[in-house]
Amino acid sequence: MSATGGTVFLLDDEPGMLKALNRLLKAEGFTVRAFTSARAFVESYRQEVPSCLVLDVEMPELNGLELQQRLTSTENPLPVIFLTGRGDVPMSVNAMKAGAIDFLTKPVKDVDLLQAVRFALQRSAERHVVNSQVDSLRQRYSSLTPRECEVMALVVAGRLNKQIAAALGIVEHTVKVHRGRIMEKMSVNSLAELVRAAERLGRGNR
């Protein structure tokens, strides 16, 4: 993945460092958005795909770890790479636990940084794919009537048509009609596909 792009957000209060990182990443063909304060970053942040954040931990005003927590708690988390001048162990453990891609110590080797950035962007892109699939499934699911939702839940749970009819107090034929509609609306061809879609929805709803 050479000059294929992706957006790298840079956040460092040291202008010299910001400029140097900007140069390195631009030379590798990334789009770079650089900020010297966390406030400026939060104010102008718009989600882009794929993107990642390279963050200096020692920033006045806003703690780097705090910001990471804020960004990862959203629905579509931004992958974060930490840079630190000090790099003590407890801090790096916390960062990794909170889902950081990597925790790098200044001075950082260019290959290490670029590798981490690429990995983060890849993660960002994958997440995006997954998220968009879940989105369309959710849309389809929302087009089901309440009765169809009930039927689908029982189908996915592995009940036979006869059992479903008994449970819902309807005739078996009506269950078959509902099943056909559900397969059509969810655009799946087999029971196995429907089960997988339900699983993904379930995870997404959790």
């Binding site: 010299g16 400029k19 140097a20 590798e28 001048g85 200044k106 001075p107 950082v108 260019d110």
Partner: peptide, 19 residues
Amino acid sequence: HEMNQPLAIILTNAQAAQR
């Protein structure tokens, strides 16, 4: 740390220049 900061900037700049 105060010493480290300029050294880090120098290294990153030098590597960017190589590229």
